[in-house]
Write a protein that binds this DNA or RNA. Structure first.
Lengths: 189, 189
DNA sequence: GTCTATAAACTGATAGAC
DNA sequence: GTCTATCAGTTTATAGAC
């Protein structure tokens, strides 16, 4: 382990702030108060704010990889895998937060290229995984879906990101309805 | 007409900045440079930045109403109406922008209640209209969709908002795929 | 209506003591 | 590693001349 206690608490607090307020709406002062240290101390770990943002998104991407691996290992079939994937977003919805990747995507133009690349990587990886699940599910006769997998994958990814946005603003869950409607696409011929 | 030339240019530029960078990522200085006046002059029209944000979102909501009215008047059937609605988002996608409402929703926690209310109103109005189109389309035998209209409406609204987010980050259109997949939901039994 | 001038607070960031 | 002290730049916002 190379990460100590303080870096973890900084990353946790920063991620929370970005997901709840947005990257450009939180300051080192906010973060310092949340973690209980001074702003100068944060600079010791993350000299620039973009370094911090990069580290948070980097960890988020690594965790996606771990989550997908865990799902692929434990879920019985492709539908169960997709349900587990959607569950990741529904847990975020429960917290009243939006996806870190979605939050950074909405500030995309103001992010440095190194962070932009991670955001794109997160979306690409998610999409590729979903496409693979659909292709596999169709091949196994699990889904009746007759269209292109890329269509359904784009629909799922977009509706999960947007669903979190919409749900938080209205403090009214959206992803349960989204999930139900989405599986109609796969189950219908 | 109560709005003069300068207010219109201020609202246009502010909307553009919010959709491209986000509410918390643009300043009166950015806006002043874009419009060609000094920051103090902006305060003459909009004393506080939240007044400006409110005015931009208020106009955006009024324009939604106009757009829905125009669609209801000109489109031949419910499917054509929904296609025209999706076109509003696809035009935004073409500009490389996200929805103003989606941008403000992603900064939701940092917005004053008066703006939050407009964001919620925009989403509520959009959803109600989409639900009505689906219910009407099913009643007319235009859609084979057998589920609850609220499900499909949540899927559409979420995927359009999220689709813009995803598309801009990857500079790769998403809404054409989203649209195709969505109509499978309505057309399938 | 638009300007100059200015303020008070906050921003990310650095230097250097402990 | 964490602190105090400090910086230069920016932010929203106001006062008052023209």
């Amino acid at each position: 382990m190379t990460t100590n206690e303080t870096t973890t608490r900084l990353l946790d607090a920063a991620q929370k702030l970005i997901q709840e307020r947005g990257y450009n709406a939180f300051s080192y002062k906010d973060l310092a108060e949340l973690v209980g240290i001074r702003t100068a101390s944060i600079h010791y770990y993350y000299p620039a704010k973009t370094d911090l943002g990069h580290a948070v998104m980097d960890r988020y991407l690594a965790r996606l990889e771990l989550a997908l691996t865990a799902i692929d290992r434990t879920a019985r079939n492709e539908k169960a895998k997709l349900r587990a994937f959607i569950k990741l977003y529904r847990d975020t919805e429960t917290c009243g937060a939006i996806c870190l990747c979605g939050s950074l995507a909405s500030d995309f133009g103001t992010m440095p290229p190194s962070i932009q690349k991670l955001v794109v990587a997160y979306l690409d990886r998610s999409e590729a995984w979903v496409v693979a699940r659909i292709v596999s599910g169709v091949a196994a006769g699990e889904f009746a879906f007759a269209g292109r997998a890329a269509e359904a994958a784009a629909l799922l990814l977009s509706s999960l990101q947007g669903g979190l946005l919409v749900a938080r603003a209205r403090t009214k869950p959206a992803l349960e309805l989204v999930q139900r409607a989405f599986f109609r696409v796969l189950d219908a011929a």
